[in-house]
Design a protein around this nucleic acid. Structure first.
Length: 583
RNA sequence: GCGCCUGUAGCUCAGGGGAUAGAGCAACUGUCUUCUAAACAGUAGGCCACAGGUUCGAAUCCUGUCAGGCGCACCA
């Protein structure tokens, strides 16, 4: 059990003596550390104020379990019970962090995720369209959530759902046809580099999408193409297969670069038919209704809005496809929970789809959860691949790498290594920038202000790690080597405030990981790491480690250094960020 | 018009009933002959959108107002 658990248990035991019901109170870290490491508001919640707090505290002081870990238990303020943890025990906790394979709390607080089979759908770019920074955001959020769930003991399947049929494909193919007639033939295009082919398709889509809105004749042609694409008509087959293949091949290079490996892929083509069948079946049972030639789900009945599931041409819309996706996913992997990560612009849409799913398949409906992240916007407003007003994911990653490389210009590192490190640092800057705030927040993207290499940033954390590693390398202390706790025997007063500050933050790592997983909030990990790094850097700046006055102090400082490095590395992993040994 | 989300320092955001509201960036001052200065120490900057309520206690919960974003029928 962790410290928080021990304290709660001890308080619960004592409460009976006062006839106060347990469970309602909180044990948390007071903001002001002068108040101790943990603080309980039992007395306040019970309405007893200081008097009750004093009585409870007296009993707590006699508790055997607490006696081992607590150096001080006292009442303060309106009736808070503040508890300080013994320095020895904090050191023990730091040593624990260095143990092989320690990744976090593994649900020491909540048993929720151990053994759970969770499917997480994220990224979801569409073939024939650009991979823009919105997809990048989805990938970064999704991957981080997966890693958090994994360290909490869940069995995670990463999946990607991609739209390989639908109007956007028709628009792109219409554009491809125009461009191929005019500028280039398919064969010579096939020989071009992947990024060039990708660019070609982006242009083709923009052309088609614009024509669809501005040119009535083009609109009709695109609608005909749309139907042909569903049927894989010879007129579109070759272009379709080439274009789809190029897109998927291109996306794969981005996943690889980012460090995501999907376990499975789903496509709209395959789930569209499943969805269509379901809608038809449940139309008869009254879940869906016919309206103006289309089949709709009457969301108004459930406080939502009505959406079209099958259009009047008899084609499944995105709604029906998503309906078909659920059982298709479950057929391949019997999940306990299905999480779908998307941008929040389709929050309302998903409420309707999940409501419909609950009607036709309550079991899967209950297991399905939509988690949304904010939208990435440009300073000029919303991105649009139709007008070409977008920032691609690849551009951002390249730009960040170039910036990192520039900063490293003077470092004494081989050019080859610099390339590798610059990529890792650039990604850290981008990923951290997107994960350090709550995932629900919209992000106005502006390279200069959004992607930072100093202060509260990914590179700052990497730098902290590299710096610590450098010290450890010189000391010949392997980061996993345990220090002998009994060698220390420090009392609180012996430690410098900077040392204590690090020690009093390190042990919280497990709690933070638990919380972050339970709340699906990677930003909690980011915030924790930044605070840890600040404390460590402050300590590092003030206290000599290798040249410490005596051996005992030196080994304590090395322990702090090793534990910080280890925690930063593991924490960054949870954000999908690598930790270079030097930079 | 209806629904969902958001208003905290000049900017970007933490904090989401508890003890003096925090950080980064930007501005200004200092610190590299000493373990990596992508760092550290410091100064300055706030009617937590506004108005009511609930509570021992509200930036946090409720109601209303204002402002912004997103969504609302055959796109995804």
């Amino acid at each position: 059990m962790n410290l928080e658990g021990k304290i709660k248990t001890a308080i619960d035991k004592v409460l009976k003596d006062f006839g106060v019901p347990g469970g309602e109170f909180k044990v948390e870290h007071p903001e002001n550390e002068a108040h101790g490491d943990y603080s309980a508001n039992v007395a306040l919640v019970a309405g007893g104020g200081r008097d009750l707090a004093e009585k409870i505290t007296e009993k707590l002081r006699a508790d055997k379990g607490l006696e081992e870990i607590a150096s001080k238990i006292k009442v303060a303020g309106a009736g808070f019970i503040n508890i300080s943890i013994k320095t020895d025990h904090l050191i023990t906790q730091a040593v624990e962090l260095l143990k092989e394979g320690y990744m976090g709390g593994k649900s020491t607080r909540r048993q929720g995720f151990v053994g759970q089979r969770i499917m997480v759908e994220f990224t979801d770019p569409n073939p024939f369209k650009e991979f823009h920074i919105g997809h990048l955001y989805s990938n970064i959020v999704g991957e981080s959530l997966c890693r958090l769930l994994e360290v909490e003991g869940a069995e995670v399947k990463r999946v990607n759902y991609q739209g390989d049929v639908g109007l956007h494909v028709a628009k792109a193919i219409w554009g491809m046809k125009q461009m191929i007639q005019k500028d280039i033939d398919l064969n010579s295009l096939s020989k071009k580099s992947l990024p060039e082919r990708q660019k070609f398709m982006g242009q083709a889509y923009a052309m088609g999408a614009t024509a669809y809105e501005e040119d009535k004749k083009a609109k009709e042609e695109i609608e005909v193409l749309n139907k042909k694409i569903y049927e894989l008509d010879d007129d579109v087959r070759q272009l379709y297969e080439k274009g789809r293949g190029w897109s998927l091949e291109y996306f794969e290079t981005i996943y690889k670069r980012l460090g995501t490996k999907f376990d499975d892929y789903f496509f709209e083509r395959e789930v569209g038919q499943v969805g269509l069948k379901l809608v038809k079946e449940f139309l008869k049972k009254g879940v869906f209704e016919e309206s103006q030639g289309a089949v709709v789900f009457p969301g108004e009945k459930y406080g939502l809005h009505t959406r079209v599931f099958v259009n009047k041409l008899g084609l499944p819309t995105y709604e029906a496809k998503d309906l078909g996706l659920a059982p298709t996913k479950y057929g391949r992997y019997q999940y306990d929970q299905s999480i779908i990560v998307t941008a929040n612009e389709i929050d309302e849409y998903f409420k309707v789809v999940i409501a419909a799913l609950k009607k036709i398949n309550p079991k899967l409906g209950k297991k399905t959860r939509h988690v949304s992240h904010g939208m990435v916007k440009l300073p000029e407003g919303k991105m649009s691949s139709r007008t070409g007003k977008i920032v691609t994911g690849e551009w951002l990653l390249d730009e960040a790498r170039a910036r990192a490389l520039k900063i490293m210009a003077e470092a004494e590192i081989s050019e080859e290594e610099k390339e590798i490190i610059a990529e890792q640092v650039g990604q850290a800057a981008v990923k951290y920038a997107l994960l350090k705030t709550g995932i629900g927040q919209d992000v106005v993207f502006n390279f200069g202000t959004s992607v930072s290499f100093e202060g509260n940033s990914g590179p700052y954390l990497q730098y902290t790690y590299a710096r610590a590693q450098s010290v450890l390398a010189k000391s010949e202390t392997r980061s996993t080597k345990h220090e002998k706790i009994s060698d220390f025997g420090f009392r609180i007063s012996d430690l410098a405030p900077e040392e204590l500050a690090v020690l009093r933050w390190l042990y919280r790592y497990g709690e933070v990981v638990d919380e972050a997983a339970a709340e699906l909030s990677p930003n909690l990990v980011a915030n924790f790491l930044f605070e840890l790094a600040q404390r460590f850097n402050s300590f590092y700046n003030k206290m000599p480690i290798l040249k410490a006055k005596d051996e005992k102090i030196k080994s304590l400082r090395l322990l702090l250094t090793a534990a910080t490095a280890e925690v930063v590395k593991r924490g960054l992993y949870l954000l999908g960020i690598q930790s270079p040994e030097k930079m």
